[in-house]
Protein backbone atom coordinates (compact mmCIF):
# COMPACT_ATOMS: atom_id res chain seq x y z
CA UNK A 1 0.00 0.00 0.00
CA UNK A 2 2.64 2.45 -1.12
CA UNK A 3 1.77 4.92 -3.89
CA UNK A 4 3.63 4.99 -7.16
CA UNK A 5 6.30 7.62 -7.54
CA UNK A 6 4.93 11.11 -8.06
CA UNK A 7 6.19 14.68 -8.10
CA UNK A 8 4.95 16.99 -5.44
CA UNK A 9 4.31 20.72 -5.75
CA UNK A 10 3.26 23.12 -3.05
CA UNK A 11 2.12 26.32 -4.81
CA UNK A 12 1.73 29.54 -2.85
CA UNK A 13 -1.17 30.92 -4.87
CA UNK A 14 -4.14 29.65 -6.80
CA UNK A 15 -2.68 31.03 -10.02
CA UNK A 16 0.54 29.16 -9.46
CA UNK A 17 -1.50 26.03 -8.81
CA UNK A 18 -3.34 26.47 -12.08
CA UNK A 19 -0.05 26.96 -13.91
CA UNK A 20 1.43 23.81 -12.34
CA UNK A 21 -1.62 21.81 -13.35
CA UNK A 22 -1.27 23.18 -16.84
CA UNK A 23 2.41 22.22 -16.99
CA UNK A 24 2.02 18.70 -15.62
CA UNK A 25 -0.10 16.49 -17.77
CA UNK A 26 -1.20 13.75 -15.36
CA UNK A 27 -1.21 15.94 -12.29
CA UNK A 28 -3.98 16.04 -9.70
CA UNK A 29 -4.98 18.63 -7.16
CA UNK A 30 -4.39 17.55 -3.57
CA UNK A 31 -6.69 19.18 -1.03
CA UNK A 32 -7.40 17.20 2.14
CA UNK A 33 -6.29 13.98 0.47
CA UNK A 34 -8.84 11.83 2.26
CA UNK A 35 -9.95 10.04 -0.90
CA UNK A 36 -7.10 10.63 -3.31
CA UNK A 37 -4.30 9.38 -1.08
CA UNK A 38 -6.20 6.20 -0.25
CA UNK A 39 -6.72 5.53 -3.95
CA UNK A 40 -3.04 6.17 -4.60
CA UNK A 41 -2.02 3.77 -1.86
CA UNK A 42 -4.25 1.13 -3.37
CA UNK A 43 -2.66 2.07 -6.72
CA UNK A 44 -6.09 2.70 -8.18
CA UNK A 45 -4.85 6.21 -8.94
CA UNK A 46 -1.32 7.05 -9.99
CA UNK A 47 -0.99 10.74 -10.90
CA UNK A 48 2.44 11.85 -12.10
CA UNK A 49 2.31 14.90 -9.85
CA UNK A 50 0.31 16.28 -6.95
CA UNK A 51 -0.36 19.98 -6.74
CA UNK A 52 -0.97 20.46 -3.04
CA UNK A 53 -3.24 23.45 -2.50
CA UNK A 54 -3.98 22.61 1.12
CA UNK A 55 -1.68 25.37 2.35
CA UNK A 56 -3.65 28.09 0.52
CA UNK A 57 -5.43 29.16 3.66
CA UNK A 58 -7.11 32.05 1.83
CA UNK A 59 -9.34 29.40 0.24
CA UNK A 60 -10.83 28.41 3.58
CA UNK A 61 -13.69 30.70 4.62
CA UNK A 62 -17.42 31.13 4.97
CA UNK A 63 -18.59 34.53 3.76
CA UNK A 64 -22.05 36.12 3.58
CA UNK A 65 -22.60 37.81 0.25
CA UNK A 66 -25.77 39.73 -0.61
CA UNK A 67 -27.34 36.87 -2.59
CA UNK A 68 -25.50 33.82 -1.43
CA UNK A 69 -23.34 32.22 1.21
CA UNK A 70 -19.85 31.63 -0.18
CA UNK A 71 -17.76 28.75 1.11
CA UNK A 72 -14.10 28.53 0.19
CA UNK A 73 -13.25 25.22 -1.47
CA UNK A 74 -10.64 24.37 1.15
CA UNK A 75 -13.03 24.74 4.08
CA UNK A 76 -12.81 21.54 6.09
CA UNK A 77 -15.83 19.45 7.04
CA UNK A 78 -15.36 20.24 10.72
CA UNK A 79 -15.81 23.96 10.02
CA UNK A 80 -18.87 23.29 7.86
CA UNK A 81 -20.29 21.17 10.66
CA UNK A 82 -19.84 23.84 13.33
CA UNK A 83 -20.42 27.08 11.42
CA UNK A 84 -23.50 28.75 12.90
CA UNK A 85 -24.53 30.59 9.74
CA UNK A 86 -24.52 27.36 7.79
CA UNK A 87 -26.43 25.66 10.57
CA UNK A 88 -29.06 28.39 10.56
CA UNK A 89 -29.47 28.80 6.82
CA UNK A 90 -28.45 25.45 5.32
CA UNK A 91 -28.94 22.91 8.06
CA UNK A 92 -28.66 20.01 5.64
CA UNK A 93 -24.98 20.84 5.15
CA UNK A 94 -24.48 20.62 8.90
CA UNK A 95 -26.24 17.25 8.84
CA UNK A 96 -24.11 16.03 5.97
CA UNK A 97 -20.74 17.31 7.20
CA UNK A 98 -21.25 15.88 10.66
CA UNK A 99 -21.64 12.36 9.25
CA UNK A 100 -18.55 12.27 7.06
CA UNK A 101 -16.01 9.62 8.08
CA UNK A 102 -14.66 10.32 11.52
CA UNK A 103 -13.29 13.36 13.34
CA UNK A 104 -9.79 12.90 11.91
CA UNK A 105 -11.21 12.90 8.39
CA UNK A 106 -13.43 15.89 9.13
CA UNK A 107 -10.36 17.75 10.37
CA UNK A 108 -8.64 17.59 6.96
CA UNK A 109 -11.23 16.67 4.35
CA UNK A 110 -12.55 19.70 2.43
CA UNK A 111 -15.85 20.61 0.81
CA UNK A 112 -14.07 21.34 -2.47
CA UNK A 113 -12.17 18.07 -2.39
CA UNK A 114 -15.30 16.07 -1.72
CA UNK A 115 -17.15 17.90 -4.51
CA UNK A 116 -14.37 17.40 -7.07
CA UNK A 117 -13.86 13.76 -6.12
CA UNK A 118 -17.58 13.36 -6.88
CA UNK A 119 -18.15 10.00 -5.26
CA UNK A 120 -21.89 9.48 -5.68
CA UNK A 121 -22.09 7.93 -2.20
CA UNK A 122 -20.44 10.95 -0.53
CA UNK A 123 -22.58 13.25 1.58
CA UNK A 124 -21.73 16.79 0.52
CA UNK A 125 -22.34 16.42 -3.24
CA UNK A 126 -25.87 15.20 -2.50
CA UNK A 127 -26.54 18.00 -0.03
CA UNK A 128 -25.09 20.60 -2.42
CA UNK A 129 -27.31 19.29 -5.21
CA UNK A 130 -30.37 19.78 -3.02
CA UNK A 131 -29.25 23.33 -2.29
CA UNK A 132 -28.60 23.85 -6.01
CA UNK A 133 -25.21 25.25 -5.15
CA UNK A 134 -23.11 27.11 -7.69
CA UNK A 135 -19.49 26.17 -8.18
CA UNK A 136 -16.86 28.81 -8.99
CA UNK A 137 -14.17 27.30 -11.20
CA UNK A 138 -10.92 29.18 -11.80
CA UNK A 139 -8.58 28.70 -14.72
CA UNK A 140 -5.87 30.62 -16.50
CA UNK A 141 -8.55 32.36 -18.51
CA UNK A 142 -10.54 33.61 -15.55
CA UNK A 143 -13.48 32.06 -13.77
CA UNK A 144 -16.79 30.47 -14.62
CA UNK A 145 -19.75 29.56 -12.46
CA UNK A 146 -21.49 26.22 -12.86
CA UNK A 147 -24.71 25.09 -11.14
CA UNK A 148 -24.82 21.74 -9.32
CA UNK A 149 -26.95 20.23 -12.07
CA UNK A 150 -24.05 20.72 -14.48
CA UNK A 151 -21.17 20.35 -12.06
CA UNK A 152 -21.54 16.62 -11.38
CA UNK A 153 -20.97 15.05 -14.79
CA UNK A 154 -20.47 11.36 -14.17
CA UNK A 155 -18.98 8.86 -11.76
CA UNK A 156 -15.96 10.64 -10.18
CA UNK A 157 -16.21 13.25 -12.91
CA UNK A 158 -17.06 16.96 -12.64
CA UNK A 159 -17.11 20.07 -14.80
CA UNK A 160 -13.68 21.03 -13.43
CA UNK A 161 -11.12 20.68 -16.21
CA UNK A 162 -7.58 19.43 -15.77
CA UNK A 163 -5.98 22.83 -15.41
CA UNK A 164 -8.80 24.33 -13.41
CA UNK A 165 -9.35 24.67 -9.69
CA UNK A 166 -12.63 24.85 -7.82
CA UNK A 167 -12.32 27.94 -5.68
CA UNK A 168 -15.68 28.59 -4.08
CA UNK A 169 -19.09 27.07 -3.59
CA UNK A 170 -22.04 29.47 -3.49
CA UNK A 171 -25.27 28.66 -1.76
CA UNK A 172 -28.11 30.93 -2.94
CA UNK A 173 -30.07 32.10 0.08
CA UNK A 174 -33.39 30.39 0.59
CA UNK A 175 -36.65 32.38 0.73
CA UNK A 176 -38.39 32.84 4.08
CA UNK A 177 -40.25 29.77 5.41
CA UNK A 178 -37.63 27.38 4.09
CA UNK A 179 -36.10 24.37 5.77
CA UNK A 180 -33.63 21.67 4.89
CA UNK A 181 -32.32 18.33 6.00
CA UNK A 182 -29.99 15.54 5.01
CA UNK A 183 -30.23 11.95 6.21
CA UNK A 184 -27.65 9.32 5.44
CA UNK A 185 -28.69 5.72 5.64
CA UNK A 186 -25.55 3.74 6.35
CA UNK A 187 -24.58 0.82 8.50
CA UNK A 188 -22.27 2.76 10.79
CA UNK A 189 -21.89 6.44 11.50
CA UNK A 190 -19.47 7.84 8.95
CA UNK A 191 -19.76 5.11 6.34
CA UNK A 192 -20.49 5.92 2.75
CA UNK A 193 -24.22 6.20 2.20
CA UNK A 194 -26.35 3.24 1.18
CA UNK A 195 -28.77 6.00 0.33
CA UNK A 196 -28.30 9.68 1.10
CA UNK A 197 -31.24 12.07 0.85
CA UNK A 198 -31.03 15.83 0.92
CA UNK A 199 -34.12 18.01 0.92
CA UNK A 200 -34.56 21.79 0.68
CA UNK A 201 -38.11 23.07 0.73
CA UNK A 202 -40.02 26.31 0.97
CA UNK A 203 -43.54 26.54 2.33
CA UNK A 204 -46.25 28.88 1.14
CA UNK A 205 -49.44 29.66 3.00
CA UNK A 206 -50.45 26.98 5.40
CA UNK A 207 -48.61 23.76 4.73
CA UNK A 208 -48.50 24.19 0.98
CA UNK A 209 -45.21 23.29 -0.66
CA UNK A 210 -44.05 26.29 -2.64
CA UNK A 211 -40.79 24.82 -3.76
CA UNK A 212 -38.82 21.68 -3.07
CA UNK A 213 -35.60 20.04 -4.19
CA UNK A 214 -34.85 16.44 -3.33
CA UNK A 215 -31.39 15.05 -4.06
CA UNK A 216 -30.42 11.42 -3.75
CA UNK A 217 -26.93 10.02 -3.21
CA UNK A 218 -25.49 6.56 -3.92
CA UNK A 219 -28.26 5.65 -6.33
CA UNK A 220 -26.78 6.88 -9.61
CA UNK A 221 -23.49 7.94 -11.18
CA UNK A 222 -24.05 11.46 -9.88
CA UNK A 223 -26.30 12.95 -7.22
CA UNK A 224 -29.80 12.49 -8.58
CA UNK A 225 -32.67 14.94 -8.26
CA UNK A 226 -35.98 13.18 -7.57
CA UNK A 227 -37.81 15.36 -10.09
CA UNK A 228 -41.07 13.41 -10.15
CA UNK A 229 -41.43 13.58 -6.41
CA UNK A 230 -40.51 17.28 -6.43
CA UNK A 231 -43.11 18.06 -9.08
CA UNK A 232 -45.70 15.97 -7.29
CA UNK A 233 -45.33 17.94 -4.09
CA UNK A 234 -45.14 21.46 -5.52
CA UNK A 235 -48.36 23.24 -4.78
CA UNK A 236 -49.65 20.42 -2.60
CA UNK A 237 -50.19 20.38 1.11
CA UNK A 238 -47.29 18.72 2.90
CA UNK A 239 -49.33 16.18 4.82
CA UNK A 240 -48.45 12.55 5.59
CA UNK A 241 -50.32 11.18 2.61
CA UNK A 242 -48.87 13.52 0.01
CA UNK A 243 -45.37 13.08 1.36
CA UNK A 244 -45.77 9.30 1.34
CA UNK A 245 -47.15 9.37 -2.20
CA UNK A 246 -44.26 11.53 -3.37
CA UNK A 247 -41.76 9.24 -1.65
CA UNK A 248 -43.21 6.28 -3.56
CA UNK A 249 -42.13 7.89 -6.84
CA UNK A 250 -38.87 9.36 -5.56
CA UNK A 251 -36.85 6.49 -7.01
CA UNK A 252 -37.91 7.18 -10.60
CA UNK A 253 -34.77 7.39 -12.70
CA UNK A 254 -32.58 5.92 -9.99
CA UNK A 255 -30.23 3.14 -11.02
CA UNK A 256 -28.45 2.16 -7.85
CA UNK A 257 -25.48 -0.20 -7.70
CA UNK A 258 -25.62 -3.41 -5.70
CA UNK A 259 -23.07 -4.27 -3.07
CA UNK A 260 -22.82 -6.19 0.19
CA UNK A 261 -24.43 -3.35 2.14
CA UNK A 262 -27.31 -2.66 -0.17
CA UNK A 263 -28.67 -4.43 -3.19
CA UNK A 264 -30.22 -2.41 -5.96
CA UNK A 265 -33.70 -3.48 -4.81
CA UNK A 266 -32.95 -2.50 -1.23
CA UNK A 267 -31.67 0.91 -2.23
CA UNK A 268 -34.74 1.51 -4.39
CA UNK A 269 -36.88 0.86 -1.31
CA UNK A 270 -34.68 2.95 0.97
CA UNK A 271 -35.02 5.95 -1.35
CA UNK A 272 -38.71 5.95 -0.54
CA UNK A 273 -38.26 5.52 3.22
CA UNK A 274 -35.59 8.17 3.58
CA UNK A 275 -37.12 10.65 1.18
CA UNK A 276 -40.24 10.59 3.33
CA UNK A 277 -38.23 11.01 6.53
CA UNK A 278 -36.00 13.76 5.13
CA UNK A 279 -38.94 15.80 3.80
CA UNK A 280 -40.42 15.66 7.28
CA UNK A 281 -37.10 16.62 8.82
CA UNK A 282 -36.81 19.62 6.49
CA UNK A 283 -40.41 20.63 7.29
CA UNK A 284 -39.69 20.53 11.00
CA UNK A 285 -36.96 23.11 10.42
CA UNK A 286 -39.01 25.63 8.45
CA UNK A 287 -38.64 29.01 10.04
Amino acid sequence: MTPKKFDYYSPTSINEAIQLLHDNEDSKVLAGGQSLLALMKLRLAAPSALVDISKLQEMSYVREDKDYLGIGALTIHDIIEHNQTIKKKFTLLTDAASKIGDQQIRNVGTIGGSSCHADPAADLPTALSAVNAHFVIRSGKGQRIVPATEFFVDLFQTAVGHDEVLSEIRLPYLPPRSGSGYIKHSRREGDFAIVGTGVVLTMGDGNVCKDIRIALGAVSATPLRAKSAEEYLKGKTLDDKNIADAAEIANEGADPPSDMHGSKEYRMEMIKVFTRRTVKLAMSRVM
Binding site: R187, R188, E189, G190, D191, F192, D259, M260, H261
Partner: peptide, 29 residues
Protein backbone atom coordinates in the same frame (compact mmCIF):
# COMPACT_ATOMS: atom_id res chain seq x y z
CA UNK B 1 -23.03 -9.72 14.82
CA UNK B 2 -23.83 -6.32 13.36
CA UNK B 3 -21.07 -5.14 11.03
CA UNK B 4 -18.16 -7.44 10.22
CA UNK B 5 -18.37 -9.91 7.37
CA UNK B 6 -15.95 -11.33 4.83
CA UNK B 7 -18.18 -11.37 1.82
CA UNK B 8 -17.23 -13.06 -1.46
CA UNK B 9 -18.80 -12.63 -4.87
CA UNK B 10 -19.58 -15.58 -7.12
CA UNK B 11 -16.10 -15.40 -8.67
CA UNK B 12 -14.44 -15.82 -5.33
CA UNK B 13 -13.40 -12.17 -5.17
CA UNK B 14 -13.39 -10.78 -1.64
CA UNK B 15 -15.80 -7.84 -1.55
CA UNK B 16 -14.84 -6.68 1.93
CA UNK B 17 -11.11 -6.21 1.48
CA UNK B 18 -10.67 -2.78 3.11
CA UNK B 19 -12.15 -1.05 6.12
CA UNK B 20 -14.57 0.69 3.76
CA UNK B 21 -16.54 -2.53 3.42
CA UNK B 22 -15.30 -4.62 6.32
CA UNK B 23 -17.01 -2.60 9.00
CA UNK B 24 -15.31 -2.60 12.37
CA UNK B 25 -17.36 -0.96 15.10
CA UNK B 26 -16.05 2.19 16.74
CA UNK B 27 -16.90 3.72 20.10
CA UNK B 28 -19.98 5.17 18.43
CA UNK B 29 -21.40 1.74 17.63
Amino acid sequence: AMFEEFNYDENGQLNSNTFIDYLVPSAVE
